[in-house]
Write a protein that binds this DNA or RNA. Structure first.
Length: 311
DNA sequence: CGTGGTCAAGCGGTA
DNA sequence: TACCGCTTGACCACG
């Protein structure tokens, strides 16, 4: 069983970002489309550098920043962020394909598909379309957009029903991309798995969120079913708490606690399935490589720079 | 240069 | 009631 490690959005080693932005207010002041285009080019250029870096270091999967294209989901702005930059997407997409990289996205907190407010649901769908457009422009076959179930206004049951209703109203091409992740405050692994099985969509297990929000559910009872929601290699998120105070527990630490990670590996070992584990740390790729060094110290085998072989 | 206020947007939790 | 954190900050204005 092989376990690949990935990271999110920013490379600390390269110290570049593909998240440069312009605010709506600032853009409205001058309506300078050239400035906007230059930011997009800068982000796409940096994304390509990050992809190159990932290839060079055998990092097989990666989460795109949700801020690649500023203001993209604003309907009233209506600028072309795909066709005008086709050669960038194609060049990056070719590398992704050639090296078989796994790339997914995770919209930010403003994407609430089960909001009680109609306009929030509408803007959430625009955000989903934006994420789809990027994955599509990159030519990614298994498009995965990871969402949380969202709000709990009027209670969990009603909120889950709102999610189902709104999900069913989505165009099929969007439905086919959505995966759900358990969150750290409201929807635990049982709630999330229920929805994923009902809607026949994949579930991303976030182990740290499960520690934060579990209602005494035992993860061992759910692992197999969670992994079975996937037609491709199951994906997980792993992170360590910033510190143990109530206030900071949910916040991600700069690095992974290697002993926590090892105890998790031992927990999933018997399932004998390949997994992709995304590390969510402030130190990004540096945290990934630090964990790799620590795991090697504890005698774990690697088949390349970032892939653990578990026996 | 460094820093402080600000940014299109939701929501729940904490002090 | 206000502020914080999350998607995992970056911008401009000001000194």
């Amino acid at each position: 069983m092989n376990i690949r490690l990935g990271y999110v959005s920013i490379s600390k080693t390269l110290d570049i970002t593909a998240s440069k932005t312009i605010t709506y207010t600032e853009y409205q002041k001058h309506k300078d489309i050239n400035k906007l285009n230059n930011i997009i080019i800068e982000n796409l250029t940096n994304l390509e550098k990050i992809i190159d870096y990932n290839i060079k270091n055998n990092i097989h999967f990666y989460r795109l920043t949700s801020k690649l294209i500023p203001l993209a989901s604003l309907k009233e702005l209506d600028f072309d962020y795909i066709d005008n930059f086709k050669e960038y997407y194609q060049r990056i997409g070719n590398k992704i394909k050639k090296y078989n990289l796994r790339i997914d996205t995770h919209p930010g907190e403003f994407c609430v598909l089960n909001s009680t407010k109609k306009e929030i649901v509408e803007s959430s769908i625009e955000i989903l379309k934006y994420h789809y457009n990027i994955l599509d422009a990159l030519g990614i076959k298994n498009k995965i957009i990871i969402l949380h179930i969202g709000s709990s206004v009027f209670g969990k049951d009603k909120s889950i029903n709102r999610f189902i209703n709104n999900f069913n109203k989505l165009p099929k091409y969007l439905q086919d991309c959505i995966a759900l992740e358990n969150d750290d405050k409201i929807y635990n692994i049982k709630d999330t798995l229920y929805l994923c099985e009902k809607l026949n969509i994949p579930m991303v297990l976030d182990y740290h969120h499960h520690i934060c929000n579990n209602d005494n559910l035992n993860i061992d009872d759910y692992l197999e079913r969670i992994f079975n929601t996937w037609k491709i290699t199951p994906k997980l998120h792993f992170s360590s708490p910033k510190n143990n105070t109530k206030k900071d527990f949910r916040t991600h630490h700069d690095y992974i606690n290697p002993l926590d990670f090892i105890s998790f590996l031992e927990k999933i070992k018997h399932l004998n399935t390949n997994l992709d584990i995304m590390l969510e740390c402030k130190a990004k790729d540096e945290a990934l490589f630090k964990l790799v060094r620590q795991l090697k110290y504890y005698d774990y085998n690697f088949i390349d720079e970032t892939t653990i072989n578990l026996k």
